[in-house]
Design a protein around this nucleic acid. Structure first.
Lengths: 246, 246
DNA sequence: AAGTGGTCTAGACCACTCT
DNA sequence: GAGTGGTCTAGACCACTTG
């Protein structure tokens, strides 16, 4: 795409111009025109490029900023956001003194499998499609705290098949970005409750049948496709979560 | 306050004009100038009243709309919002077939007490201040499902002291609004797990020691003061909650 | 048809960040 | 000082709702 050319937006009937413009910009971002962390052109420049008034362009950018696609910094510029931080799962749990500490992670097993009905549904792939299954234990202060089952769609995450287990860091999302070019931008968590199986309890240093909390996460990238399904199990009594309702 | 007079806003240093204007409008709403459900004056009128451009006035209204204080309806007007619906607690739980059904509520006990340290802290009153304590059981399809402990600051909720128990409806927030003039606009919920005591389990038709979920709610009115502290206990296995992270 | 909020424009000026 | 995003203005026109 020629960067200096005029590219008019064509709002569909019933759609506002700034909404159409936001969609157009969203596509340019997702096409990789400005990689994550790099600034977009200045407002005046972008407005001229798309043949709209400054206020309209700003409305569009505000929309994208709300959606978390870009980030605006006064005096500096408008930047394409990278993925989520990665330690977000921890904000659900309260452990002794390790607040803000990144948990140590150990991959217990890694194997390519075929997607079950449940996994396929949540991951948005076909039943029987190849997926990478990870089993992972995360510890705080040498105490095992979180037991994770992770499913990743396989053509996409193939680089992880051979990656030496010793080189896996404590956070997965940065690894997704570096190794597989996948940026997680949005995730949904479902919180439920179930007693731990004997095997699960053993990993977590808890008695069998101990009450456990189950957090099922589906993570999505810029294009909205689900790139990760993760089930985390932990001590229910160490779980704590706060929400604001409006 | 004279409605037709010019009332200029005075933004504090470092504050934008629309922010100052929003604060001014917020005060006018909270002072009861336009009761809940009634429309504010038209944009052009309000802008003229406060001596600002239309765009600035709109920015201020957008702020208040985001905060849930007002609601804008295209072609109709800008309205002061009432309180929260009231059945919000249910969205945490999945029970058999009663989706969307409003649970039947029965008040088990009602007594004025003095605030303990914990209740005082969460309610924002002094230790020893009078509060009204309610014990309440809520059922779906004749099955007891939710056991609630509720504390209400007492000068404010005095009308509830004499109100015949037979006349209490199934929802509390509408009653708060009608009887005590209290509109709940915001609430925070904290979710945790704990085993049920024998007494709690008995009310819920569950065995003693059964795993329970505890939702602690603090509800606030327009002015930001806490008007309700509520602890809800229920079957942990029937608990389910979904969040979106961005 | 009249009144409401929603969109869009064109331009001025301010506040922040870097060099 | 030059470049960025943030605020504010004044006015035109559109879309929705109601009588």
């Amino acid at each position: 795409m020629a960067p200096n050319r005029l590219t008019l937006v064509q709002p569909e009937p019933g759609q506002s111009r700034y909404a159409a413009l936001a969609a157009a910009l969203r596509h340019r971002v997702m096409a990789g025109e400005w990689p994550a962390g790099t600034p977009l052109p200045a407002e005046t420049r972008l407005a001229a490029e798309h043949g709209v008034a400054l206020g309209t362009l700003r409305r569009a950018l505000e929309l994208l900023a709300e959606q978390g696609l870009i980030e605006r910094r006064h005096g500096k510029g408008t930047f394409v956001r990278g993925g989520l931080a990665g330690a977000t799962m921890l904000r659900f749990f309260r452990f002794g003194s390790g607040d803000g500490e990144v948990p140590r992670s150990r991959v217990l097993s890694r194997q390519p499998v075929v997607a079950s009905a449940e996994v396929a549904r949540r991951l948005g792939v076909a039943v029987g499609d190849p997926v990478l299954r990870l089993h992972r234990l995360r510890s705080l202060q040498a105490q095992p705290r979180l037991l994770e089952d992770i499913w990743l769609p396989l053509p996409l995450f193939a680089p992880l098949l051979d990656w030496p287990l010793a080189d896996w860091g404590d956070l997965l999302y940065p690894a997704f970005a570096e190794r597989c070019g996948v940026a997680v931008t949005r995730a949904t968590d479902e919180i439920g409750f179930a007693t731990l199986t004997a095997a699960q309890a053993r990993h977590l240093d808890l008695p069998p049948g101990h009450p456990g909390v189950t957090v099922t996460r589906q993570a999505y990238d810029l294009t909205g496709r689900c790139v990760e399904l993760r089930t985390t199990r932990a001590d229910a009594f160490a779980f704590h979560y706060a929400v604001t309702i409006t």
